[in-house]
């Protein structure tokens, strides 16, 4: 019986890969997102999830619970009342967690950027944002681009090694 390594790969369907790459591949392929539709951007996020744009072909599946999600898509105007809730829900998510800020409002306050006591001037004031998607509101293509940018970021991650 030939026990050489090459034959073993052949016979037992073994693949060789870096564990980092394998984990990143798994993570990036199933970025389930916690839908945080707050205003008109939510309509575009919903459109992105519908069959025409089909976000699920990138492995992104809408979840209604932070405990099942890997990424929050904050889509819309974040009011002060909602800001404390976003923080709480973000804290409930399991690591690794990511945030896509979708639209001008959640990027910087949008039309309320200067005035408006009631609007948070950018969701990055309370939670760390990974990807900013510009637009008012961004088209579904822009959100898909943002999601792919997040995939790229996840693939470059080194979850098992400390970055020096």
């Amino acid at each position: 019986m030939d026990m050489s390594l090459v034959n073993s790969f052949d016979r037992d369907n073994i693949l060789v890969a870096r564990v980092d790459d394998f984990l990143n591949w798994a993570r990036a392929s199933s970025t389930w997102y916690f839908q945080f539709g707050l205003a008109c951007c939510a309509i575009e996020m919903i459109a992105a999830a519908q069959p025409r744009h089909d976000l699920e072909r990138f492995g992104a599946m809408p979840r209604a619970s932070p405990r099942q999600a890997d990424v929050i898509i904050v889509s819309g105007t974040v009011t002060m009342t909602m800001a404390t809730r976003i923080k709480r829900l973000y804290d409930q998510m399991a690591e690794p967690k990511y945030i896509i800020s979708m639209g001008s409002c959640s990027n910087s306050g949008g039309p309320y950027w200067q005035h408006g006591y009631h609007v948070l001037k950018g969701v990055d004031l309370i939670v760390p944002v990974d990807i900013y998607v510009p637009g008012c509101p961004p088209r579904p293509e822009a959100l898909i681009d943002g999601l792919l940018a997040l995939h790229k970021k996840i693939r470059e991650d080194t979850p098992l090694r400390k970055v020096s």
Binding site: M80, A83, T84, G109, W113, Q114, H115, Y117, L120, K121, G122, L125, I126
Partner: peptide, 15 residues
């Protein structure tokens, strides 16, 4: 007049 902070969150951005 709007407060400067709400629960530690800046209310109006210093521009």
């Amino acid at each position: 007049t709007a407060p400067d902070y709400y629960r530690g969150i800046p209310v109006l951005k210093d521009k």
